[in-house]
Amino acid sequence: MTDENVNATLTVDVPVTRVFAVLADPTTHAAIDGTGWVQEAADRAPLTETGQLFRMEMYHDKHPDGDYRVVNKVEVLEPPHAIGWLTGTEKADGRLEFGGWIWRYDLTPLGPSGTEITLTYDWSAVPPYVREYLHFPPFGPDHLINSLRHLAALTEETA
């Protein structure tokens, strides 16, 4: 872990194309998450291009509203090797505001039926005013590996 990002790596016995397909499906993200914060996809279309927006229904007991919605913007899409998105909010007037953190998955094929998955959470672009009210990272050190284990289970059961 550095001061600005954290990552975890896990190897699964699933083809890289299957892992990528699961990650590109927003309806799987609640099952992958593992914190209970991600509730369900508000936008259910597969992720197919950079710049694409997708919204997720969320819950956090320390959020002022409990239930809330985030908007994500696909920043990295290199099928089947990498996918990543920025997370932000949509204001009442429709403006989008991204906080500066990105979730990124890098997938390395290990032959025809294995994949090494590296999940990186990077908050290096978070501006100072956001850091005044949000602590980074907002989860414990085991979160990323737990999330990868959930992804592994999901890809293995649907392979």
Rank of each mutant, 00 (worst) to 15 (best):
69 R>A: 12
153 A>P: 00
141 P>Y: 01
121 Y>V: 09
77 L>F: 12
51 G>E: 10
15 P>Y: 06
104 R>Y: 06
149 R>C: 01
24 A>D: 12
73 K>R: 15
80 P>C: 13
90 E>P: 14
68 Y>P: 13
110 L>M: 02
3 D>E: 15
19 V>E: 00
96 L>P: 06
94 G>F: 11
152 A>M: 01
140 G>C: 00
24 A>L: 14
93 D>R: 13
24 A>I: 06
112 P>Q: 11
148 L>P: 02
4 E>M: 10
150 H>A: 02
58 M>Y: 14
74 V>I: 15
84 G>Q: 05
96 L>W: 13
156 E>K: 05
65 D>C: 02
108 T>L: 07
14 V>A: 02
90 E>F: 11
142 D>C: 00
138 P>G: 02
50 T>F: 01
144 L>F: 03
11 T>R: 09
133 Y>G: 03
55 R>S: 06
62 K>G: 11
57 E>Y: 12
8 A>Q: 00
154 L>A: 09
132 E>Y: 02
99 G>V: 12
36 G>Y: 10
155 T>Y: 00
22 V>N: 12
85 W>V: 15
127 P>C: 03
127 P>Y: 04
15 P>G: 02
127 P>G: 03
79 P>V: 11
69 R>E: 11
16 V>R: 10
127 P>N: 05
62 K>Y: 11
116 E>K: 10
113 S>P: 02
47 L>F: 08
10 L>S: 01
104 R>T: 15
130 V>Y: 05
115 T>A: 04
77 L>M: 12
70 V>S: 14
151 L>T: 02
9 T>E: 13
40 E>N: 13
10 L>A: 06
151 L>Y: 03
103 W>L: 07
76 V>H: 10
34 G>H: 09
1 M>T: 08
3 D>Y: 03
116 E>S: 07
121 Y>A: 04
66 G>Q: 09
17 T>A: 00
38 V>I: 15
83 I>H: 07
84 G>L: 09
66 G>I: 05
43 D>M: 08
41 A>I: 03
145 I>A: 01
63 H>G: 07
134 L>I: 06
121 Y>G: 01
27 T>M: 08
136 F>W: 08
129 Y>G: 03
52 Q>F: 06
2 T>S: 11
33 D>A: 07
18 R>E: 14
132 E>A: 12
136 F>H: 05
149 R>I: 01
2 T>E: 10
67 D>V: 11
28 T>S: 08
114 G>V: 04
129 Y>L: 13
90 E>H: 04
111 G>E: 03
94 G>Q: 12
7 N>Y: 00
1 M>C: 04
67 D>T: 09
53 L>I: 14
97 E>H: 13
39 Q>N: 14
92 A>L: 07
111 G>L: 03
51 G>T: 10
49 E>S: 12
146 N>V: 00
98 F>N: 12
46 P>L: 07
40 E>R: 14
92 A>P: 05
45 A>C: 01
101 W>I: 01
123 W>V: 01
44 R>N: 04
129 Y>E: 09
116 E>V: 01
83 I>R: 08
63 H>I: 14
19 V>M: 00
47 L>C: 09
29 H>Q: 14
31 A>Q: 14
57 E>V: 10
2 T>D: 13
71 V>K: 15
12 V>C: 01
99 G>S: 07
124 S>K: 04
55 R>A: 02
79 P>S: 15
129 Y>D: 10
64 P>I: 14
128 P>G: 08
43 D>S: 11
